[in-house]
Simulated scan of single mutants.
Amino acid sequence: MSDGQRADARRNYARILAVAEEEVANHGSGASLEQIARTANVGSATVRRHFPTRRALLEAVSAKRIAVLCARAVELTGGEDSRKALLTWLDEVVTYCVTARGLAAALSYDETDPTHENSCSAAIEEAGDPLLRQAVRDGAVAPEVTVAELITLIVGIVLATEHHPDPAAQADRLFRLAVAGLSPRT
């Protein structure tokens, strides 16, 4: 590949990614790859060469958002109230997933390719692990809980509420219910 072709491929990638970010924001994880190709003024094969699967496209679109969530986990780690820090971060993950259409899908398990390493989930789990471990050490969270389970819970809530008239409020309510449990307050 010549330098000109590499530069062209880089420009195509950047253009496809920019268009994909807008399409995913408007249409969620079901954004049309063909529409992305048309809007980016490239062929469908070019889109597929850069993003061989829808999951790869969603992960690329979500990478910046994931980086922000990971940085936020680092900021919150080591605070005095480890449960509050963990819940603050998880609240922010819920909010991001509700507002950033496609992010929940990028974090979800891919049953079509169980061997695929989900870079978004791996990054989130690694970032949230210190928060969770501290909360477990402090006795604020049960020791058997994993970040993967918490993210799965969030993904399920977000996907179940995405068509609700007020998805953010409903997702927040369901997450609070999951955290509090079914027992009445004493």
Rank of each mutant, 00 (worst) to 15 (best):
M1D: 09
S2M: 05
D3H: 06
Q5C: 00
Q5T: 02
R6E: 14
Y13C: 01
R15E: 03
I16Q: 05
L17N: 07
V19S: 09
V19C: 11
E21K: 15
V24D: 06
V24L: 06
H27M: 08
G28D: 10
G28M: 05
G28H: 10
G30C: 03
L33G: 14
I36W: 06
I36V: 15
A37I: 02
R38Q: 12
V42S: 11
G43W: 00
A45T: 02
A45G: 10
V47R: 02
R49M: 06
H50E: 00
H50F: 00
P52A: 03
P52I: 00
A56S: 10
L58R: 12
E59L: 13
E59P: 07
A60C: 02
K64C: 00
K64I: 00
R65H: 09
R65A: 07
I66W: 04
I66K: 06
A67C: 01
V68Q: 13
A73F: 00
L76T: 02
G78I: 10
G78Y: 13
G78L: 13
G79Q: 14
G79D: 10
G79Y: 09
D81W: 04
S82E: 08
S82R: 08
S82D: 09
R83H: 11
R83W: 11
R83L: 14
L86E: 08
L87H: 09
E92T: 02
E92H: 07
T95L: 12
Y96S: 15
C97S: 15
C97V: 05
V98A: 03
T99H: 13
R101Q: 08
G102S: 09
A104R: 06
A105T: 03
L107W: 01
L107D: 00
S108A: 15
S108R: 14
T112I: 01
T112N: 14
D113P: 06
T115E: 14
T115M: 14
H116P: 04
E117K: 09
N118M: 04
N118W: 06
S119G: 04
C120N: 03
S121A: 15
A122Q: 06
A122C: 04
E125Q: 10
E126D: 14
A127Y: 01
D129N: 13
L131H: 07
R133S: 11
Q134N: 12
A135E: 05
D138H: 00
G139V: 02
G139C: 08
V141D: 06
V141T: 10
A142H: 15
A142C: 08
A142N: 13
P143C: 11
T146D: 09
T146L: 13
V147I: 15
E149W: 12
E149Y: 08
L150Q: 14
I151V: 15
I151T: 12
L153E: 11
I154Y: 04
V158R: 11
H163M: 10
P165N: 11
D172Q: 15
L174Q: 11
R176T: 09
L177S: 15
A180H: 12
R185K: 12
T186W: 07
